[in-house]
Simulated assay, not measured.
Amino acid sequence: MKYQNVYQAGYVIGTFDPKTGTNEHGQFKELDRGFDFNAPQTTLDQQGRSLLFTWMSVPDQNEQDHPTILHQWLHNMTIPRGVKLVGGKVW
Rank of each mutant, 00 (worst) to 15 (best):
G26M: 03
I79K: 09
N38S: 14
E24L: 13
N76A: 08
V90F: 01
Y11G: 03
K89F: 03
N38K: 14
I69W: 07
Q47S: 12
F37N: 01
T20E: 10
H66W: 09
L31T: 01
L52Q: 02
D17E: 15
G21N: 08
L85P: 03
V6W: 13
I13P: 01
Q27H: 13
F16M: 08
G14H: 06
T15A: 14
V58H: 05
Q47G: 05
Y7A: 12
H71S: 11
D17P: 07
K89W: 01
G48L: 03
F37P: 00
Q4N: 14
L85K: 00
S50W: 15
T54W: 07
V83Y: 00
W73P: 05
G82F: 12
T42E: 05
P40N: 03
L44V: 11
K89A: 14
Q8M: 10
G26A: 04
E30D: 15
L52I: 09
N62C: 06
T15K: 12
P80H: 01
H75I: 01
F28T: 05
D45A: 00
D17S: 11
K29P: 03
L52D: 04
T78Q: 00
F16A: 08
T43A: 15
L74A: 05
R81S: 01
E63F: 10
T22E: 14
E30N: 11
F53E: 02
W55G: 07
D17N: 15
V6P: 13
N23H: 15
Y11C: 05
R49H: 06
L70A: 15
H71G: 02
F37C: 03
W55I: 11
K29V: 07
Q41F: 14
H75Q: 04
Q4T: 15
T15D: 14
L31P: 01
W55K: 08
T42A: 09
F28P: 02
Q61K: 11
Q41K: 15
N5M: 13
E63L: 10
R49C: 07
G14Y: 06
G87W: 01
M56L: 14
K89I: 02
N23C: 15
L85A: 00
S50C: 13
G14M: 04
K84R: 04
S50G: 07
H25F: 09
M56C: 09
I13S: 02
V6A: 15
T22P: 04
F16Y: 15
F35D: 12
H71R: 12
G10Y: 10
P59A: 05
N76Q: 02
G10R: 03
G21M: 06
F53W: 03
G87A: 00
N62I: 08
N62W: 07
E30L: 14
P67Y: 12
P40H: 05
V90L: 12
G34S: 09
L51K: 08
M56T: 08
D17V: 08
F53A: 09
N38G: 07
H66I: 02
K29H: 13
Q27F: 10
M77I: 03
K84C: 05
K19F: 10
V58I: 11
G21R: 11
D45S: 03
Q72K: 09
I79Y: 06
D60E: 13
W55N: 10
Q64T: 10
K19N: 14
G14I: 02
E24W: 09
D45E: 04
P40K: 00
H66A: 11
Y3S: 12
L31K: 05
Q27M: 10
D45N: 10
T15G: 06
W55Q: 11
R33W: 06
